[in-house]
Amino acid sequence: MCYGIKAAIESKVKVLEVYGDSLLVIHQMKGQWETRDSKLIPYHTHIKELKEHFDKITFHHIPREGNQLVDTLATLPSMFKINTGQDVLVIKIQQKDMQAYCLSIEEEYDGKPWFCDIKSYVKNKEYPLGVSENEKKVLRILPMNFSLNGDMLYKRNHDMVLLRCVDKSQEEEIIQEVHEGSFGTHANGNAMARKILRVGSYWLTMESDCFSHVKKCHKCQIYANKVHVSPTSLNVLT
């Protein structure tokens, strides 16, 4: 906050709105809370001196989850060391609508399964077209836990059991059979994921898909235990 206010002073800004994710500091700057911490008193005094350079300055609080991008940008300078006369690299920032792990494991747009690149590298030692050197390095590490038997790709589990990798078209069928099929007991997401591993199948989003299926199961919602209901009837005590 201090460096941002100094930058505004250097730019000769006279009306400033300051946003911060620290509820304590923001309320202290607004004068609503007292500053009692010996470490914060000099900081608070310095900010009050900087406020004299503005005609109007206001402080606003925003939650930390809404300030993640600003925190990331503030952390970046501490991660780079730039020597004198060295050109600064351009940092590209992109915002995705989905989590990064979802983008890396979902079915490809051309209909290929999630393990297509891994299978191609294990079989032919080939990289996909247009990948970077960093992606090639990751692709060399991933196949260490995978093995190919004929045309079927298997993942080696922590207990050295081989699990068959399945694609999107088989995932829903396996989940329904384990959850409500001939041996299904309408178990929760964790139990379903362990059953699928015992059956010998595997895909990357297995646990999250099992939890999502349980939430959509009508019988699980109707006959599940009501955890928020009191075990005994409530009586009024005078």
Rank of each mutant, 00 (worst) to 15 (best):
L153E: 01
S169C: 10
L197T: 07
R198G: 05
Q176V: 03
D151S: 14
E171L: 03
L153Q: 00
V178C: 08
S212G: 07
E177K: 09
R198E: 14
S169K: 12
M160P: 01
A224F: 11
Q221C: 07
M206P: 00
M144R: 13
N149H: 15
I175F: 04
S147M: 06
V138F: 08
Q221P: 00
I175H: 01
K168S: 11
L139V: 04
Y223D: 13
K195M: 11
N134S: 11
R164N: 08
F211H: 09
R156C: 13
E171C: 14
R198D: 11
P128T: 10
V214N: 01
E172K: 11
H179Q: 03
K219T: 14
K219H: 11
K195I: 06
N145A: 14
L139N: 05
I141M: 13
L204T: 12
L148S: 07
D167Y: 01
P143Q: 03
N145W: 04
E172Q: 12
I174M: 06
D209G: 02
L142Y: 06
E177C: 08
D159M: 14
C217Y: 07
I196P: 00
E135P: 04
L163I: 09
W203E: 00
F183Q: 14
K216M: 09
G150Y: 04
E133N: 09
V131A: 04
I141N: 14
M160G: 08
S212V: 06
